[in-house]
Write a protein that binds this DNA or RNA. Sequence first.
DNA 1: CTAGGGTTAG
Length: 707
Amino acid sequence: MLRFSPAILVIARSSMRVPSSMSPTSAFISFSNNIYSLTRSNQHGEAIRLFAELLSQGISADCYVLPSVVKAAAGLSSLKTGAQVHCLAFVNGHHSDSLLLSSLVHFYLKCDRVMDARKVFDRIPRPNVVACSALLSTYARKGCVVETKELLREAVEMGLELNSVSWNGMIAGFNHSRQFKDSVLMFRDMHSEGFKPDGTSVSSVLPAVGDLEMLPCGVQIHGCVIKQGLSQDNWVVSSLVDMYGKCARPNEMSKVCEELPEMDVGACNALITGLSRTGCVEGALKKFKQFKRQGLNLNVVSWTSMIASCSQNGKDMEALELFREMQMEGIMPNSVTIPCLLPACGNIAALMHGKAAHCFSLKNWISNDVYVGTALIDMYANCGRIHLSRRCFDMMPRRNLVSWNALLGGYAMHGKSKEALEVFDLMQKSGLKPDFISFTSVLSACSQGGLTEEGKFYFDSMSRDYGIEPRLEHYSCMVSILGRAGRLAEAYTMVKQMPMEPDGLIWGPLLSSCRVHHNVVIGEVAARKLFKLEPNNPGNYVLLSNIYASKSMWVEVNSVREMMKSKGLRKNPGCSWIEIKNKVHMLLAGDKSHPQMPEITKKLGELRLEMQKSGYLPHTDFVLQDVEEQDKEEMLSDHSEKLAVTLGLLNTSPGFPLQVIKNLRICGDCHAVIKFISEFEGREIFVRDTNRFHHFKDGVCSCGDLW
DNA sequence: CTAGGGTTAG
């Protein structure tokens, strides 16, 4: 017998709708109608409450009111309620009512009880298409190819007339379970069974075409679109644009759009992502602005796509600007916009902008979203605030592997190897299996912290205990680990024994290690490989020449410089960013264009004097050229990170922490100077270089002078 | 008396 909790009955009684004078029949009709209309208007809870009231009055439910109740239970996804109704129906003898059983099929599907749904379905004396289609699409959605095809066959045997909705459901279902081939096959079968694909069929099947291998299928479907006269259907065009974008066919994208009498937002959004996917952010921006000027109603998706394109393609400042603009246009960012924006803040260490986005998430109740939380962890880590990453992590109500990896990677980047290994341990205790990204972070943490033996242990354990075969990036970490420990011969042996072809990710760290340990022999090997692999990367030439210079091998230094010159290569210009009062400043080495440059130079001069007083000697061997000592010193003073730090000193109040990010590795001299500044000026200074974070405080750096 | 299907942002 159906039982509802006393609380529900109390509520039910308090909202009596039936005057006591009514006869049982009219009372029943009144209840029945009310329940029906409540369910129809999605007031599922009310419907159930009314049903409880009906029962409490001793009126028995018939097979006309029960489907509504089942539907209400499905609407609430309340397995308990629905199952109770199912029992009641059974007890009352309604075991073979088609309508009721169909509604139960939907209910069980809604509650993710596919087996139960199927059991009920099999009891329907004359099942209808709708229930069958629902089962079919659910099977497809779960990736149960065999079950789908079997039921499809049975349905035909039973004489069920499937319609295009049934087919479309299966097609979409297979895409959901990433069974792309089956999705396309279904589309084909549908065609050969004599069903004309409609707009829904096409936009359901097209997401299955995601790469060049599937493109021929996509082109065929496009042909079908033209034949069926669907070329002007907005949804169809959006899917076509998306498909051609994924397959890197920009010309096709615009051609398809031109078919539309008027450009549609969906197609516009697909076009923007398509363009940026094919590496053309400029084009995407141009289109975006053009559509905006034309008065097209751009929505959250449009703005979010544009922000994502920018932050994924090095246009971080533009991403921040777009975020501001969209709000001015009255478009409300959502829980997708924020994780698209945050990487841009992290990339250029725009902490204040990142914090603003964090506040936005809190205010708009989206901070509990896993993607938002994970992006916040990343952003704070990239802005040098690893403790804030941790706080965000701890506050997350739900986490996934990516969230854990973000924290792990953050600790690694900050050289906090102890914390990284702790997190690695905790993530496994929480029941998650580390993946290859987790191991990259673990190994990188070992490398940053100089944990040579631990690094070797985790490297071996990775394939032995976790079944994860080491990839290039793991070997790269091992080279760094051994290289940092000065075990260059061992590192080189490992490179020679690697199962895959070593690339720049391997030879680069080896060459850097040789630079640190002044190893000419292995350094030359690594450099030669690198010159072949990345002939136009000036960094490698500089490193080799530095190795020679450190051994006073000036002839060799000159020959490397000649090589660079003959290839027309110049040292990559050092570039640093610093955020001051919500504005991000970019400083280039040797660039005098910043309006405050005179002040910066003056301040740097003063600092240099102070440094000399305290016995500081510049590390001139970091300069490439064999030039006079005086010139060397001047060249050093122009490094962009020094300029950025000085600019920060000039424009913030005493004691305010500074953070700078740099596009190259920090050089030894700048490192020493910033250590000095952190003590002399009493500032915490965060510097992120390409390799890791340096947290300067009281004259000490968190990297322990190893990097 | 009803019931079921689709595109574009992470």
